[in-house]
Design a protein around this nucleic acid. Structure first.
Lengths: 363, 363
DNA sequence: CTTTGGCACTCGTCTTTATTGAGTGCTAAC
DNA sequence: GTTAGCACTCAATAAAGACGAGTGCCAAAG
C-alpha cells in the first residue's frame, strides 16, 4: 500500500489516539496531536480517502474514525516504531524470572502471570515436544518386600517415577529380572511401539502372572503420552474485563470459555522461529471466537527437544508495540533460563565450583 | 427462632421461589405455590412479621420480599430438606471420577472442573498435610559419570526426584558415601531440622568441597516445604458471570481476583470433619470480598497424612440443597479413590491378581 | 382474634420526547 | 491544494409520562 507521508502520519495518529482513549478520533484531535499546522478540514479530506482505502472506518456518520483491521495491519507492519521495555517492567521481569526457580512448570506459571500483569491482558504459555521422546532408562528402587519405585529417565532429560505396591511380595531376583527386561525392550522406543503384543511377550519372558508387567508398561505409555502432549495454560483471564471492548459480559464470557480449553489454546497462531513475534489481528484469526480480538505471541527456545510459546490475547485496540516489547523481553529471559545447556550457576557464592542443577520431573 | 408452621412454609417458599427466579417474591406468588387456600392479604401480614424478625427484606416498598441472610440461615438449618444428587449428575460424577486416573493432581483438577460444571459456580479444591512430613529414604541412580538422579521417598508415600548434573565427574564411591550419609542424617527429620549447621557438618563428614551436599540438602528442604504446603486451585471462575448478581463487572472482577489468590483460598471456611458440609452465608464470611457471596465446602479423606477440601463459591441466592448434595457425592467419590489403603483394582479383567497402584510424585 | 376483599399509594421499569454537542461533509473563497 | 464557515447527522443524556406489580391499611366477615 503506497501512502503519502501525510496519510501515514494521520493513520498512525488515529491508531495511537484510539488505542489510548478507546474513543473514535476526530479530525481536530489528529491536528492537535500532529503538531503541524495543517487544518482540520484537510485532515478530514485525507481521512475520507483513508476510509475509501479501507484503513479507517466510521462507527456512524457523526463520529470520529477508528482504524479498520487492515488499518492496524498497515500500522503494525510499516508505521509502528518498536519500543523497548520500560525500565520498570524490565526490573519486574528480571525479579520474577529468577534463576532459583527450581521447577519448570512453576517457571511457566510465573512467566504467564507476569506477562498478564504487565500487559493487562490474559496470557498463555505452552510447551511442546519437537522430537520423538523415548524412555532412556529404567530403574527400580526397592522399598520393602511388597513395594518398589519405578524411575524412568526420558530422552528429553526429564525423570518420572511411580510407587508400585503389590498385594503379594515380589522377590528381589524378580525385580532385577524386570529391570533388565524393561531396559532391553522398552527403552529407545516411541509410545506407538509399546504394543499389547510387546507387553504379552515381555510377560512371557519374565514369567509374570501377576500383571505387574502390564502395570509398568502402562506407566511407560502414560508418561510418554504425557511427555509428548502439549502443556498449555492461561493466566489472568479476568483481566479481559478491564477493557471496554469486553464490558459486554456475554462476549467476555464466550472468549474466556474459549481460552479455558487447552485444545483451543494449542491452535492459537504461532510464530515460525524462536524470538520472532507473531501478531494476528482480529479477523485474521481463524477461530470465530477471536474475530474481534488480537493475539501476540512469541516462541522461545528451551533447549532439548522442547519448544515454548508465550502470548497474550486482547482487544484489537491494543498497544502492539508495548506488548511486543514485553513479550520479547520475557521470551529472552525464558530462553536464557531454560536452554543454555541447562546449567545454572549455584547461588551460594562461597562455593568454588558450578554445579549443574536442572530440575525435572518433580512434582 | 420459634416460628409457626405457616411462617416456616412462607419463608421456605420465599427462599425457593427467589432462588429460582432471582426476582423479589410477592404475596400472590407465595399463595399460588403454597397450594393452601390462604389469601394473599394473610400472607402479606405474615411477611410483615417475618420482616420484623429480620428474616425477610424488601428492596423497596413496592416490591416483593427477598430472604435476608439470617433468613437463608434459618432455611438452611431447619427448613431445607436434603436432596439426593440427580441421576444425571450421579452418572456424570461416576464417569468423570474414573479409577483409572493415575495422577492425583489431575484427579483434583477433574473434580473441581466437574463440580464447577454441575453447580454452575466456581469450584475450588485444596489438599494439605495433616501431620509432619519427613523424608523416609534417599536413593541415587547413576546416569553417567557426571550426572545422577536423586530419588526421595517421603513419609506420606509420595516420591520425588531430581536430575543433578555436575561439571566435574563424581566417583561412584562418593555417590555411595553420599547416599549413606544422607539416609543417616536427613531422614525422619522435619524441614526445620535441616539446618545450615547440619549441612556443614555433612559436608565435612563426606569431605565435600564441590557444593554437592548443599545442592542435595537444598533439594530436600525444597520438597519438604512443597509437600507440607497446601495446594489449592480454582476452576470455572467464569461461571460467576452466568449469575445475575455478578452482572456488575466490577463486582465479578473483584471476587474473581480474590479467588485467584491461592493464599486467600486457603483461608476459606472449612468443615471440621470429613464428610461434613459447611455452608457459609454472605456476611458470615470473614473476608470482605465474600460478604455477598456464599461458600459451600466439604472435607474428604485422602488417607495417609493428607486431607482434602472441595467447595464452591456462589451468590447468596444459591440452591444450597442441590449444591450440598453434589458436593457430598463428589467428596465420597474422592475419598473412595484416594484413601482405602490406596489399592486400586487393575482394570484388565483377565488378570487374576489385584495390584497396588498408587500414583505419586509424578509430574 | 384471625382472615379476607377492597382500594389507594409507592416506586422501579419502560417508553417517549426533547436537548445537547461532537464531528462530519460540502462549498465557496483563498 | 488548503481552509474557514455552516448546515446536518446522530449517539448520548436528560426529563417527563405511563404502566403495573406489589404493598399497607382498613373495615367487614368468620
Amino acid at each position: 500500500m503506497n501512502l503519502s507521508e501525510r496519510k501515514k502520519g494521520i493513520l498512525s495518529k488515529v491508531v495511537e489516539l484510539y488505542v489510548k482513549t478507546a474513543e473514535p478520533v476526530g479530525s481536530k484531535a489528529v491536528v492537535e496531536s500532529l503538531g503541524s499546522r495543517i487544518s482540520s478540514a484537510t485532515v478530514r479530506s485525507e481521512m475520507v480517502e483513508l476510509e475509501s482505502l479501507g484503513l479507517l472506518e466510521q462507527p456512524h456518520t457523526s463520529a470520529g474514525r477508528i482504524p479498520s483491521s487492515t488499518g492496524y495491519r498497515i500500522y503494525v507492519n510499516d508505521l509502528m516504531q518498536s519500543q523497548n521495555v520500560s525500565t520498570d517492567d524490565a526490573h519486574e521481569i528480571n525479579n520474577t524470572l529468577d534463576k532459583r526457580i527450581a521447577e519448570k512448570s512453576h517457571l511457566l506459571d510465573k512467566a504467564s502471570n507476569l506477562t498478564s500483569r504487565l500487559t493487562t491482558y490474559p496470557a498463555y504459555a505452552m510447551t511442546s515436544a519437537t522430537g520423538i521422546i523415548t524412555i532412556a532408562r529404567f530403574d527400580f528402587i526397592y522399598v520393602d518386600s511388597s513395594s518398589f519405585i519405578i524411575v524412568a529417565l526420558l530422552s528429553n532429560d526429564t525423570v518420572k517415577n511411580k510407587l508400585v505396591q503389590l498385594l503379594k511380595p515380589c522377590k528381589p531376583q524378580m525385580q532385577a529380572k524386570l529391570v533388565a527386561v524393561f531396559n532391553a525392550s522398552f527403552t529407545g522406543k516411541p509410545e506407538e511401539s509399546i504394543t499389547p503384543a510387546l507387553i504379552t511377550a515381555t510377560e512371557r519372558a519374565v514369567g509374570d502372572t501377576t500383571g505387574i508387567v502390564a502395570v509398568i508398561a502402562g506407566f511407560a505409555i502414560e508418561l510418554l503420552v504425557e511427555a509428548k502432549s502439549i502443556g498449555a495454560h492461561i493466566a489472568g483471564a479476568v483481566n479481559l474485563l478491564d477493557h471496554p471492548e469486553y464490558r459486554d459480559i456475554d462476549k467476555a464470557q464466550r472468549i474466556i470459555r474459549y481460552l479455558s480449553d487447552v485444545k483451543e489454546l494449542a491452535r492459537l497462531p504461532s510464530p515460525d522461529t524462536a524470538g520472532e513475534i507473531k501478531i494476528t489481528i482480529g479477523p485474521e484469526n481463524l477461530a470465530d471466537e477471536l474475530r474481534d480480538s488480537s493475539v501476540v505471541a512469541v516462541k522461545y527456545d528451551t533447549g532439548g527437544d522442547m519448544q515454548g510459546l508465550i502470548g497474550v490475547i486482547g482487544p484489537i485496540r491494543m498497544d502492539y508495540s508495548k506488548v511486543a516489547a514485553n513479550l520479547s523481553y520475557i521470551a529472552q529471559g525464558l530462553s536464557l533460563l531454560l536452554s543454555g545447556s541447562g546449567i545454572l550457576q549455584l547461588d551460594t557464592a562461597t562455593k568454588s565450583k558450578k554445579i549443574g542443577d536442572e530440575e525435572v520431573g518433580k512434582k
